[in-house]
Design a protein around this nucleic acid. Structure first.
Ligand code: FES
Ligand code: FES
Lengths: 203, 203
DNA sequence: TCATACCCTACCGAAATAATCAACTATCCA
DNA sequence: TGGATAGTTGATTATTTCGGTAGGGTATGA
């Protein structure tokens, strides 16, 4: 039931990019994404390539280059990210919705393990498919603001060149190009920490 | 978020032993546990050694030997089994209750990923720590009876020798020897398939 | 004493992980 | 114009884990 380092780094990078976007920062470079956070830079680089391949981020090369989100964070459920990077959410093949495959049990319908794991899968998917990248970003920023922490990416040195130049990507890879301009509303949160934080209106 | 083959086989073996116990079968041999279920015998053998090391099963050697449960199935939460075979339930070290270890994030308290994964961990643990081996066995047997299937291990050839001879294990390894004679009651089930089946009183 | 079935140790190939190295490219400034 | 610089991209490699084999050793009961 483990998330691999790759998955962890990918999610953290996407969250960081979401935060950057939220506070108005144009581009963030890999060095900065990894910086101070102990993520091995070169490893993160090749993870970013995967994320670009998936169509979720775009990059600009050369000096003052970097990455930024290519899709609205609200349209990107965490479950989709995990599935793309890590594989199916289900702990066992025979209960996977997205990638079912029969296991060796003689009778799936009367397998207690299957019933149990079905419940586990639904619990996991219930959380990861309900929250989007935007939710996680929002919850992070709210907590930071509440505790009076300085927000990251607050327009540091790299800033200017105000004109939004078209960025390199999206040429070769036609990949997933969703970008429906309508942002879906936030789904109701499930029980848990995140729900508590969303409902803490003292903030 | 995957369960390894080893974990899957271990759980299936324990469930089978639980069923065997429930229908009055004394011992089940590895060949039979693996038989018809495509589990590689030699692999299962060494998994059984682990289970014995954990104190959950005991074995009798020699002709007409085999395995059986050593602890009441009701006292064995699935979560414990998974933790022992697979490691912590938490998807990420910084949200593990049983094996916490800090991750490389600079500030755990304001990490959105951590909050999210905490919810996931709690959801998983909420299921796996609530149901015991006995619950899974019961749910399996109920479904089989309801559909009129023949129960397995219905006193086949190996049966007799009614005297319960003390079995080999529990000598070298002093391991976990719980065996409180009081069977804990079943905890209230959480939402899900298993709960539905438990509440289906038409059976 | 023989057959059976658990027990132990070693090994192996493949895949996933984590990280490194070596190019390549866009931008800037002289 | 032509490096120099800062950054991305692709290929490669070392390490560990996973899933499984193989073979012999040992206790036990018939
Ligand atoms: S049917 Fe998949 S574990 Fe039994
Ligand atoms: S604190 Fe563990 S992922 Fe951020």
């Amino acid at each position: 039931m483990k998330l691999s380092k790759k998955g962890e780094y990918a999610l953290r990078a996407l969250i960081e990019l979401g935060i950057a976007q939220e506070v108005g920062r144009e581009l963030v470079q890999v060095t900065e994404l990894a910086g101070s956070k102990q993520i091995p830079i070169k490893f993160l680089e090749q993870i970013m390539v995967d994320l670009r391949g998936a169509g979720w981020v775009e990059s600009r090369r050369g000096k003052f280059g970097g990455y930024r989100l290519r899709v609205p964070a609200r349209s990107l459920p965490i479950g989709q990210i995990v599935r793309a990077i890590e594989g199916p959410l289900a702990p066992i093949g025979c209960v996977s919705q997205s990638a079912y495959e029969p296991c060796s049990c003689p009778d799936e319908d009367h397998c207690g393990l299957r019933m149990l794991m079905m419940d586990v899968r639904n619990a996991i998917a219930g959380i990861l498919d309900r929250y989007t990248l935007a939710d996680v970003v929002e919850v992070t920023l709210r907590k930071m603001r509440r505790d009076g922490l300085p927000l990251p990416y607050a327009d540091s040195h790299v800033a200017p060149r105000p004109v939004a130049v078209p960025v390199s990507a999206a040429r070769r890879r036609s990949a997933a190009a969703p970008a429906s301009p309508i942002f879906p509303a936030r789904l109701a949160p499930v029980e848990g920490l995140i729900k508590d934080l969303f409902e803490d209106y003292t903030i």
